[in-house]
Design a protein around this nucleic acid. Structure first.
Lengths: 335, 335
DNA sequence: AAAATGACCTAAAAGGTTTTCGGAAACGTA
DNA sequence: TACGTTTCCGAAAACCTTTTAGGTCATTTT
C-alpha cells in the first residue's frame, strides 16, 4: 500500500473507473452530462488513487494560473503582511495562491522578480511599498493587471490604494478637541515623507476647523524613532509649558514622548494626552498607559487591493489613487 | 509596434529565425549542437518578440516547478519573514520562487493549504512554527521533501532546524560572569513553552559552570510581555536587593524590567545589567539603554533550512532536530 | 417500421516546451 | 567513386488536462 512513485493522473483514474479520460474529467469537474452511477465510480477511483489534478496542465490549457505575485520592498514586514492576509481573504479560501517576492528596495532585483513572475504566468501583481511616497510605475507594457498598495504609482492611470493619512490625523485632533484639549502639538517624522506631510496637513486642517492654534506654533519634524519622541517632549514642554495634548506621527515617537513627559512630571493622560499613529501593537498596547492611536486598516487596504485586482482580471479597473479611511483606536493615553 | 496580444511562443521565435522549434529550444538553452550563427539568429528573434518561455509548459514536462511552499502559522511575522528571506538567498537569485501560505494556527486550513500546494506541484515545503514547541508532522506520505524551521516536527525522522536556546541563554550568563556579575536572576515566559524551559536550562547550566547560585533562588516564569517585565523587577528587587544582573527570556520582558528598575533607582547597567532575548530591533535598540540581547540568527536558520530542502530535493537529507547557534549582541545594557 | 429525440459517452485536439533519435549535408579518406 | 565521420538540424513524442464535436444506443414519436 505504498504511495505510488508517480502521482496518479486522470488517465489512471479513468482506467480504474473504466471510462474515458474525457468522462473522468467531466465527472470530477461536474461539467457535461454524466450518469450519477458513472460519476460515483470516477470519484471512487480518484479517491482510491488519491488523485490530485495537475494544476500546471490545467493552467497551460486554460491560460489562468490562479496565482498572483506580491512584490514588496519592505521585507514583507510592516506592510506586506497585512496585504498578504487581505489578499488571501479576498480570494475565496485557497482559490488563489500568492507568489511572494521581496525586492529589498533594489530596482534591479525588482525588475528581475517581475520577469520571473511573468515567466510563471501570474494572473496579476500587487506592488507593496514601504512608505506612502509615490513610486515608479511598473505597469508599462505589462500583460497583466497591477495594483499598488500603500505606496501609490506615479502614473495616474494605474490603480493605487493608500491610507487616508490626512483624515486619520484629523480624526485624532477632533477626538482631542472633543475631550476639551485646547493646546495641541504635533510631532512627526522627516518632512520629506509624504506620510509626515499628510498627517501634518490633517492636524492643521482639524485645528483650523476648531479654531485652535498649533501648540508651539509649528509642526515638529524629526525621525521615526522613540529617541526623537523623547527629545521632542523636551522641545514641546519648553516651547509651550501649558501644552495639554500631542498628536504623534508614529507609535514609536509616541512611546518615547510619553516616557520622557512622565519623567518630567507630566501625568499621561491627565496633564498631557498623547495619540500615536500606526497601531503597531507591540508598542501601542505595551506602553504605560496603552496608546490611543490611528490604525491605518492595512488589512482592509490589502483586501481591497486584492479584490480590485480580482476585478481588474475581469477588465473592470478603476484607475487612480484611492484613499481608504483610517480608524482611531481609543485607549488610555487620552481621556 | 504594440505588444502582441498573445505572448510569443517558441514556435513564433523558431519561425522568425527560420529554424525548427527543437533548434530554437536548444539554442536558447545552450544545449545540443547548434551553429554559432544559428544561435545568434534565434536569440535575435527571441529578443525581437520579447519571448518569455512559459514556465508552466516547461514544468509540466520536466516535473520540476522550481517552486517551494512556505507554510507558516505565525502570520508570516516574527519568524516567517527571516525564513523567507533566507530561502530567497539560499536558492540563487530568482531561481526558486516561494509560494506563501498562512494557516493562522488552524489545522484544517493547514491541510487545505498543503493540498493546494501539492496540486501546484511545489518541489518542497518549509514549515515554520510560531514557537519552538514540537508540532505535528505533516510529512506522512507526502510526495515532496519537507523541512521544519523554528518549530520542530514531532517525528524524529523529519528534518527540523531550531535555535539552540540552551546555549543562547548560557552565552548570556557567561558574558555577565565575565563582567564580574555574581547575583544573576532569570525572568522568562510561561513555563509550558519549550523556549522558556530551554533558556532556563541554559541559564542554570552556565551558573553551575561558574559555581554561582541563581539570584532569588528560582527562575521567574510569567508571560512574554513588557508588563510582566515590570512586575518581575519588583519581585526580583524584593527577593534579592543585591541582585546585579538579570537575563530575560525576551526583549519585551527586558524592556519592561529596565524601565521599572530605573524607576526604583537602579542604574542600568551600572547597578543592574540586563540581557534580553530575540534582538527584536524595534525594542532592543530603542530602549534606554539599548539592550544586550541574544539573536537567534533566524535568517541563517531560514537559509539553512532552505539549503537543506534543496539538498533533500537531491535525496540527501539528514533527519533529526538540528540546533543552530545563537549569537550574543552586546549593547549598552551590560558593562 | 422508420424516424426523431435524448442521454451518455469517446476520440482527438490544443496548450508550449524539452528531448530523443534519426536524417542530411559537408568533408575527409581509401 | 564509395564510404566513414562529423556537424548541425528537424520530426515527433511526451508531460496532463479540458473541451469540442461527434458517435452509439435506447427510447419515444410519426
Amino acid at each position: 500500500m505504498a504511495p505510488p512513485q508517480r502521482p496518479a493522473t486522470i488517465t489512471d483514474v479513468a482506467a480504474l473507473a473504466g471510462v474515458s479520460i474525457a468522462t473522468a474529467s467531466k465527472a470530477l469537474n461536474g461539467r457535461g452530462q454524466v450518469r450519477a452511477e458513472t460519476r460515483r465510480r470516477v470519484f471512487q477511483a480518484a479517491e482510491e488513487l488519491s488523485f490530485q489534478p495537475n494544476a500546471l496542465a490545467r493552467s497551460l490549457l486554460t491560460g489562468s494560473t490562479r496565482t498572483m505575485g506580491l512584490l514588496t520592498s519592505d521585507s514583507v514586514g510592516r506592510f506586506g503582511i497585512p496585504v498578504l492576509l487581505g489578499a488571501e481573504d479576498a480570494f475565496g479560501a485557497g482559490e488563489m495562491a500568492v507568489l511572494l517576492c521581496d525586492a529589498r528596495g533594489d530596482a534591479i532585483r525588482e525588475q528581475h522578480h517581475i520577469r520571473t513572475l511573468l515567466t510563471r504566468r501570474v494572473d496579476g501583481l500587487i506592488v507593496v511599498g514601504e512608505s506612502t511616497d509615490p513610486r515608479p510605475s511598473i505597469s508599462r507594457d505589462l500583460p497583466v493587471p497591477v495594483v499598488y498598495a500603500y505606496a501609490p504609482s506615479d502614473d495616474p492611470d494605474d490603480v493605487s490604494f493608500v491610507p487616508d493619512d490626512v483624515d486619520g490625523a484629523a480624526q485624532a485632533v477632533r477626538h482631542l478637541v472633543t475631550l476639551g484639549r485646547r493646546r495641541i502639538a504635533h510631532v512627526t517624522g522627516p518632512q520629506h515623507y509624504q506620510a509626515a506631510q499628510d498627517r501634518a496637513a490633517g492636524v492643521t486642517l482639524a485645528l483650523e476647523e476648531a479654531g485652535l492654534p498649533m501648540s508651539g506654533g509649528q509642526v515638529l519634524y524629526g525621525v521615526w524613532s522613540q529617541r526623537w519622541g523623547r527629545q521632542a517632549a523636551e522641545v514641546i514642554l519648553r516651547a509651550d509649558p501649558e501644552v495639554d495634548a500631542v498628536v504623534c506621527g508614529s507609535d514609536q515617537i509616541a512611546a518615547g514622548l510619553v516616557e520622557a513627559a512622565r519623567e518630567r512630571g507630566r501625568r499621561v493622560p491627565e496633564d498631557l494626552a498623547v495619540v500615536g499613529y500606526d497601531n503597531w501593537e507591540v508598542l501601542s498596547t505595551e506602553t504605560r498607559p496603552p496608546l490611543t492611536t490611528v490604525d491605518m486598516n492595512l488589512e482592509v487596504l490589502g483586501r481591497t487591493a486584492a479584490q480590485h485586482l480580482f476585478a481588474a482580471l475581469g477588465g473592470r479597473a478603476t484607475p487612480g489613487v484611492h484613499r481608504l479611511p483610517c480608524r482611531l483606536v481609543i485607549r488610555e493615553s487620552t481621556v
